[in-house]
């Protein structure tokens, strides 16, 4: 039985912004995603990771009522996901696709006026001004969107997504194709959304930005592989370890590490470097240092081994032939 553990629960606080329960989408005989379940709390930044073709965008489209799931159920912004509820759900969410899809012959302000009208706003001027200000585009309001750089277009897309003050914002690869400076600006804007209490559902390939921004991440590869906080995933996947580096190779490392209480196992990693599996790296570091010094070793460094979200991702995906095939 695979049960939910507290670590996978969304942070407490109000009814969930998203509840996804065994959701599946097939296109005829082909499977886009299968049996996906998770919950996202209000105000949470939730990362949705996975390789190309894993079903991330299709999941967003299903939750955004653009396509109908084949089976399973969900509620979005507190509204059950049914075909009849489509307009109500879309009124309370915003989706920014990978390509912001702006009308290039219209100005920034005209693009936003269109969408404010579609959200039923009768006097959209102040709302548009506020959205533009939040993405630092007030000065470009009269520019044609066709004349903007890709980074600026992404910002217009974000401003558009802010127009209806959404309860849940879906951002699909928001930094895709952006240079590092533009990507950094977009990430800062997403961080700003978190501070405003907006629930953000972020699909991305960029693990560094997921690690930096997301409260929790889900890793999808047609089926859901894992959900949790990045540090939890690291702990689950990788044993805790210390990396020891000495000035010269140890003559009898097995004798030293084997006699040190708390070291579960060890392996060499280079001529004078060793990885020790321990239960509590922080408390074990002084013990290991003393044992090494007693044995006459010159210790260069003892550090806790760090695993990034990328390590977690690769660990989950690399062994998967489906992912390798894509």
């Amino acid at each position: 039985m695979v049960g939910i553990t507290r670590g996978e629960d969304p942070p407490a606080g109000g009814s969930p912004a998203l509840v996804v329960d065994h959701l599946t989408k097939r296109f005829g005989e082909r499977l886009a995603f299968e049996d996906v379940s998770f919950t996202v709390a209000p105000g949470e930044v939730f990362g949705f990771l996975g390789p190309n073709g894993a079903g991330k965008t299709t999941t967003v489209r299903a939750l955004g009522t653009l396509i109908a799931p084949t089976s399973g159920s969900a509620s979005v912004a507190g509204i059950p996901l049914t075909s009849n509820n489509g307009p109500e759900i879309r009124q309370r969410i915003a989706i920014m696709p990978e390509n912001p899809g702006l009308y290039k012959r219209l100005t920034v302000a005209e693009n936003l006026q269109l969408f404010a009208g579609l959200y039923g706003q009768r006097n959209p001027g102040p709302r548009i001004a506020e959205a533009l200000e939040s993405v630092n585009l007030t000065a470009r309001a009269r520019d044609l969107c066709g004349n903007l750089s890709k980074g600026l277009r992404q910002r217009v897309g974000l401003a558009r997504a802010l127009l209806n003050e959404p309860a849940v914002m879906f951002l699909d690869e928001p930094t895709s194709g952006l240079d590092p400076v533009a990507a950094h600006e977009v990430l800062d804007l997403i961080n700003g959304l978190r501070q405003r209490g907006v629930t953000v559902f972020l699909t991305t390939h960029r693990l560094d930005e997921a690690e930096r921004l997301c409260d929790r991440v889900a890793i999808l590869n047609t089926t859901l592989r894992s959900v949790g906080r990045p540090d939890e995933l690291r702990e689950r996947l990788f044993s805790r370890s210390l990396v020891v580096e000495t000035l010269a190779p140890l003559p009898a490392p097995d004798a030293i590490f084997g006699s040190t209480t708390g070291v579960e196992s060890w392996r060499p990693e280079g001529p004078s470097s060793y990885v020790l599996t321990v239960d509590d790296p922080r408390n074990m570091a002084p013990h290991v240092t003393r044992a090494l010094v007693s044995a006459g070793a010159d210790v260069v460094s003892i550090t806790e081994s760090q695993h990034s979200l990328e390590d977690v991702y690769l660990q989950l995906i690399d062994d998967d032939p489906e992912a390798a095939a894509r």
């Binding site: 695979v2 005989e29 082909r30 499977l31 886009a32 079903g55 689950r236």
Partner: peptide
């Protein structure tokens, strides 16, 4: 689906072992 990329025929789907207790499957 466009953007959803390639999808996998049902028969080809192979689950990789789940990380202990890591699935949010209420």
């Amino acid at each position: 689906p466009a953007g959803g990329g390639d999808v996998i025929p049902p028969g080809a789907v192979r689950r990789i072992p789940r990380v202990g207790g890591s699935d949010d499957r209420r």
